[in-house]
């Protein structure tokens, strides 16, 4: 059986539902000898801010015994001007769809960055990161605020025809109101979810494992949390959902599609296995063959409730 891997979201056609999670795939070319771009529907860059950010003091990454990793990068990025001057040239435009992640502390930050990014030709769209746990102002605090999410989304919507996904934090007990606010403000998709706030301690040394003490928890333990948010949101919104959180194999990805996701972001898994896109596509195809599913898109939201 020839399984159709394509997913379509309005005008946007992704040849596979696999995307790279922001911050795990740099500016799109660092992995170029290791990752097969033809297996990716698109890539999402590191979040870009108006001014350059140096990020948090080291150490910035650690593992936990329960599995998964915690990072406290602190949105280190070159800033939008240096991005335009130094990084755009190496974006994998033409090899796969390119989305640029945008982050800021205020509505004006987001619109100023997007205004500059609008000058780049041939990118597919933006992901608005309104959810990072690693910065004090903005980030998570903005993401927790329904009005802020709506204001940022609306402002960016009014200045671009490109695809816009709004990335939210998993820290809501109830995600529906924020998801609905983003949709009403004109989002084309929701990305669910960013990392959870986490912390790790080395008891022997009495030290926190991260320079910033707390960070963003990602990898396999995040998956059940993100899965629940994807499913909850899919019950109330009718725009596509991009899943992010802990996927390491094809079955993880299938589960997210059953719960309602149209696209799947591979994040931390790339650190362990940069060949994950290729491997996961094979695993997803095998699943579809076993279950007589002709198209990946037929899986979206097809969960049966017990």
């Amino acid at each position: 059986m020839n399984v159709d891997t394509k997913v379509i979201m309005g005008d946007l056609v992704l040849r596979t539902p696999l995307l790279t999670g922001s911050g795990t795939f740099g500016y799109g070319n660092e992995y170029n000898t290791l990752v097969d771009y033809s297996k990716l529907g698109g890539i999402i860059t590191k979040s870009i801010s108006l001014e350059p950010r140096n990020g948090n003091p080291p150490p910035r990454i650690c593992e936990t015994r329960a599995g998964g990793i915690i990072n406290s990068i602190g949105l280190a990025n070159v800033g939008v001007d240096a991005f335009l001057n130094q990084k755009v040239e190496a974006l994998p435009i033409g090899k796969t769809e390119v989305f640029i992640s945008v982050v800021g502390d205020s509505v004006e930050d987001y619109t100023s960055v997007v205004e500059k990014l609008e000058t780049i030709e041939d990118i597919a769209g933006y992901e608005l990161n309104i959810s990072c746990p690693n910065v004090k102002s903005g980030g998570l605090s903005l993401g927790g605020d329904k009005e802020a999410v709506a204001a940022i989304t609306k402002a960016v919507r009014s200045m671009t025809h490109r695809f816009v996904s709004v990335k939210l934090t998993p820290h809501y007990a109830v995600i529906a109101p924020v998801a609905e606010a983003a949709v009403k403000a004109g989002a084309d998709a929701l990305t669910l979810t960013n990392t959870l706030v986490g912390m790790a301690i080395d008891a022997e040394c009495r030290k926190s494992l991260l320079g910033n003490v707390t960070g963003g928890y990602s990898g396999p333990p995040l998956k059940p949390v993100s899965l629940a948010k994807v499913w909850q949101a899919s019950q109330v919104v009718d725009i596509p959902i991009w899943a992010s959180g802990g996927m390491v194999n094809g079955i993880d990805c299938i589960e997210f599609m059953l719960a309602g996701a149209s696209a799947l972001q591979l994040g931390s898994v790339l650190f362990a296995d940069p060949t994950a896109p290729e491997r996961i596509l094979v695993e997803m195809t095998e699943y579809c063959e076993r279950h007589n599913v002709e198209r990946f898109s037929n899986l979206i939201g097809s969960l049966e409730i017990q």
Binding site: K46, G55, P58, P59, I69, N71, I73, F271
Partner: peptide
């Protein structure tokens, strides 16, 4: 040495402070 995730310059995990300028 520094704790690393990607190893290829993609994740910004493995930083050491610059002596002559701001940043890492």
């Amino acid at each position: 040495e520094a704790p690393m995730a990607c190893g290829v310059g993609a994740c910004q995990s493995c930083v050491v402070r610059k002596a002559k300028a701001e940043g890492y």
